[in-house]
Design a protein around this nucleic acid. Structure first.
Length: 414
RNA sequence: CGGGGCGUAGCGCAGCCCGGUAGCGCGCCAGCUUCGGGAGCUGGAUGUCCGCGGUUCAAAUCCGCGCGCCCCGACCA
């Protein structure tokens, strides 16, 4: 899409449309095109990895939920219009799941009877639907969106706190691995309820949320909670405001749902107690959008390597030249065989079109193969982020890219 | 839900005020030339003018009702 889409105002929305990553189906409802889906999958995989590493187990619950469970928790009446309700052919009431506390609690109360079976953390990566008053900014605030939601069940407060902290650390690793600049902040817990919560904010000028952060320590809070300009409650540092995009939120729920829905387990003394719950969300599709808000320039997207739809883009400048095409295919094949994700622009477009499109879709490394450099046995390696170009031989380019894209695996924290 | 705006070719828009049967740019198709930063020339295809109703000899244009979408605000894991 060459023209600026008229409907889009913010960078991520505009660039995702132009780069062919998403297309709108209705307000706040989008199709992920192949390029966009690849990015979504990248985020998902990082999330899944880190969730699994904490010992959490993946499951998948239905999007359609019966009213009974929501009546039990008391939220059928409280949730409001954001909850999209409908009836089936038998006039039974259902809703599209905006979150899954009711379903997971229903599952756990049926399956878990003893404290010996806890702690337990279950999660899913699934499409949610919230009939937002005002969906906006493309994937930033959609009505239908992809979310990772995890739920922890513990025998007591102390143990629950451990699960909560474990999730907090997993969230740090997730957003670090995504290559994003972020801050965890103290926040209100809203409709979900519960005792305390933290939001994970990706810092970006266009963010909808405001937060304050301390200069001298790592204290940060949502502006709902703390007045701007004041000094840090933990020490003497000064608080400054930032804008951010909420990509994750972790909650200590306590026994709100387990009590309401009568989920009970037996403790060491054979006494019935309600498990202490926590819930933990990550907006997967929103994270992709936030990555763009934080990483773009006038020409287009600048993907952080871990989220890029492809790692390397091979650009044969001229499709007519046999030498150029043979070398391009060779480089493409070699890198692919090394396990890299490579995109080759084999369209018969003019060079300018290819260069501009490459900068637009923002794959981190471009290998540009043209007649002039080929004559000296050279190709160009261009880094999208800073525009720097190196002229190297075809052998060298493989080696260089290998080092840039496939770094030696880092030791992992548990 | 309050306020503002928009809906005309695949996309971006003009035309509407002042009614006369639709146009520009990009894209698309064909041909020739071109080929390192969004090519040039020639020829071509494409429209329920958001929908319904009304006024009129005649409606994209005027009037009424509806629908969809965008932006601001209030709201929101």
């Amino acid at each position: 899409m060459r023209e600026e889409p008229g409907e889009a105002e913010v960078a991520s929305h505009r660039l995702m449309l132009r780069a062919g990553m998403i297309r709108k189906v209705a307000a706040g409802i989008y199709t992920y095109l192949p390029l966009g889906l690849r990015v979504i999958r990248k985020v998902e995989q990082i999330v899944r990895d880190e969730m699994n590493r904490t010992g959490a187990q993946e499951l998948l619950m239905p999007m359609v939920q019966p009213s009974e469970l929501w009546l039990e928790s008391g939220r059928w009446g409280k949730y409001g219009k954001e909850l999209l309700r409908f009836k089936d052919r038998g006039e039974r009431e259902f809703c599209l799941g905006p979150t899954h506390e009711e379903l997971i609690t229903d599952l756990v109360r049926a399956e878990v009877k003893s404290y010996r079976h806890l702690p337990q953390i279950l999660y899913q990566i699934q499409t949610k639907f919230r009939d937002e008053i005002r969906p906006r900014f493309g994937l930033m605030r959609g009505r239908e969106f992809l979310m990772k939601d995890a739920y922890s069940f513990d025998r007591d407060e102390e143990s629950a706190r451990i699960s909560y902290d474990k999730m907090g650390r997993a969230y740090h690793r997730i957003f670090e691995r995504c290559g994003l600049e972020f801050k965890p902040v103290e926040a209100e817990s809203g409709v979900i309820g519960g005792s305390f919560s933290q939001e994970f904010m990706v810092l970006a000028e266009t963010g909808e949320d405001r937060l304050v952060a301390c200069h001298s320590c790592d204290y940060a809070a949502n502006v709902e909670k703390v007045k701007e300009g004041s000094s840090c409650p933990r020490g003497h540092g000064l608080l400054t405001t930032h804008r951010g995009i909420e990509v994750g939120h972790i909650f200590m729920l306590g026994t709100k749902y387990s009590e309401a829905m009568k989920a009970v387990i037996q403790d060491q003394n054979g006494k019935e107690v309600c498990p202490v719950m926590g819930c933990y969300g990550i907006g997967v599709s929103r994270t992709a959008a936030a990555a763009i808000e934080q990483n773009h320039d006038k020409k287009g997207i600048i993907w952080p390597l871990p989220l890029a739809p492809y790692q390397v883009q091979v650009i044969p400048v001229n499709n007519q030249s046999e030498r150029v095409m043979i070398t391009s295919e060779l480089i493409y094949g070699t890198l692919s065989n090394l396990g890299m994700e490579v995109l080759i622009d084999d369209r018969s477009e003019r060079p300018g079109v290819k260069f501009n499109d490459a900068d637009l879709i923002g794959i981190p490394y471009q290998i540009i193969i043209g007649e002039k450099n080929m004559a000296e046995g050279l190709v160009e390696l261009k880094e999208r982020r800073n525009g720097k170009i190196k002229k190297v031989t075809t052998d060298e380019v493989i080696d260089l890219v290998k080092k840039l894209v496939l770094p030696p695996s880092k030791p992992t924290e548990s």
